[in-house]
Design a binder for these strands. Structure first.
Length: 380
DNA sequence: GACCTCTCCACGTCCGATTC
DNA sequence: GAATCGGACGTGGAGAGGTC
């Protein structure tokens, strides 16, 4: 029978615990789980052990064979290279509409979001609505109590004798309204494939709504939804609820015309593209202008990429609105925002724009974050 | 490069259903 | 019965893509 072993777990400089084990686990993963349980830790950790052969230096633990009685184990919160995630953060926005933040995982043991590994690419507070990418499987929301009740009855009827339900206008409004709200929480301008997803998810969840005459038995719902989204955007605009939609309003674009005609002499956004117009953050125009002035100084300093990146991120909304509203010429832009033309910013924006355009599904993945990090380290 | 067709989007309008 | 709401549809301007 193996002898029990005693370990000293170093949690921090002045925080340690004793841990007794009946036997050494076979794998490091098991040991990590046991340490987490014993010390009541959450989040990602890795372990190092005190290597006597090297004068007591802490060495990464790759095998439990290094563990003996009275070994000192050091707990390292999270593993930066292994735990990179992409997520939206609220404080420091940047230059791309699909703004993202790739940073090391800040578990309960770590608050290391300010390391050099952090790629500050976050979204504006106004865009908090769209904090998640388009779901792989669209989750149909819960409708009003009345609608849900009718659907439940309709589905039961459908299961029994394949009878389809013809929704009343009230029910139809409720369904479309809730779907539009949910779709809008992901995308203001969903494409055909997105709407097909929603329509299919709807008829899958509520088979009584299937339309036998249409493609996939859901094409009619897709058309309805497409129309609803258009009306929904108009509705939001009329209530002034979405500034990002307002800048894409044709009438508001042709201000120079005293009697603006819709879509007359206006450059229209490219297919599937709309002006990104984040709301000003909690910071004031004055403070942001001050930040911009500081940036002019910072940009002249050497090896100052991180500070520039941070300040560019912080002034993103301010800069974006300036560009959308005033449409400044390149000379003015270069004069006011020289950092925007630095290689790092151009590369980063380019990579994100291309990726978001062609491979939107990978932009939230860990693999993309890792690749981006390596690219920035090596080439920027 | 010109032309054509298709698609997208905003906008306006119609019309049926609902509310008052 | 008038007012309001909202789904549906038509229209026009613009971009994308294909063809010659």
């Amino acid at each position: 029978m193996a002898n029990p072993i005693r370990l000293l777990i170093l949690l921090s400089d002045n925080n340690s615990e004793r841990m007794d084990l009946a036997l050494v686990p076979d794998t490091v993963e098991e040991l990590i789980e046991q340490v987490k349980e014993a010390c009541k830790l959450t989040g990602g950790i890795r372990l190092q052990y005190k290597d006597i052969d090297f004068g007591g230096t802490f060495v990464n633990l790759s095998s439990t064979s290094s563990i003996k009685d009275l070994t000192t184990i050091k707990v390292i919160p999270s593993v930066p290279d292994a735990d990179i995630i992409l997520e939206f953060i609220d404080s420091v926005p940047t230059e791309n509409s699909s703004s993202l933040s790739a940073h090391t995982d800040s578990s309960s043991l770590s608050t290391n979001t300010d390391s050099d590994d952090t790629i500050i690419l976050s979204r504006s507070p106004s865009e908090r609505l769209r904090t998640k990418p388009w779901p792989k499987e669209f989750n149909i929301p819960t409708f009003s109590f009345e609608t849900e009740g009718q659907l439940e009855k309709g589905n039961a009827e459908y299961t029994k004798n394949q009878t389809r339900l013809t929704p009343t206008s009230k029910m139809l409004s409720d369904i479309l309204e809730r779907l539009a709200e949910t779709v809008f929480s992901y995308k203001a301008y969903p494409n055909d494939a997105d709407l097909s997803d929603v329509a299919q998810a709807l008829t899958k969840k509520h088979p009584c709504l299937r339309q036998p005459d249409s493609f996939n038995e859901s094409y009619g719902w897709k058309l309805r939804l497409k129309n609803k989204m258009c009306n929904y955007r108009t509705q939001l605009k009329s209530h002034g609820l979405a500034s990002e939609l307002m800048v894409n309003t044709l009438k508001s674009k042709s201000r120079e015309d005293s009697l603006p005609h819709p879509a007359k002499n206006n450059k229209k956004a490219r297919r599937g593209e709309a002006n990104y117009y984040p709301q000003p953050s909690f910071e004031t125009q004055e403070s942001l202008e001050e930040e911009r002035t500081l940036l002019l100084t910072e940009v002249k300093k050497r090896n100052n990429e991180r500070t520039i990146r941070e300040k560019m991120a912080r002034t993103f909304e301010f800069r974006r609105q300036e560009i959308v509203d005033q449409k400044p010429c390149i000379e003015n832009l270069m004069e006011r925002w020289p950092a925007l033309f630095q290689v790092e910013e151009v590369y980063l924006s380019f990579i994100l724009i291309i990726t978001n355009h062609f491979f939107p599904e990978i932009i939230h993945t860990q693999g993309f974050a890792n690749t981006l990090k390596v690219f920035i380290k090596n080439y920027i």
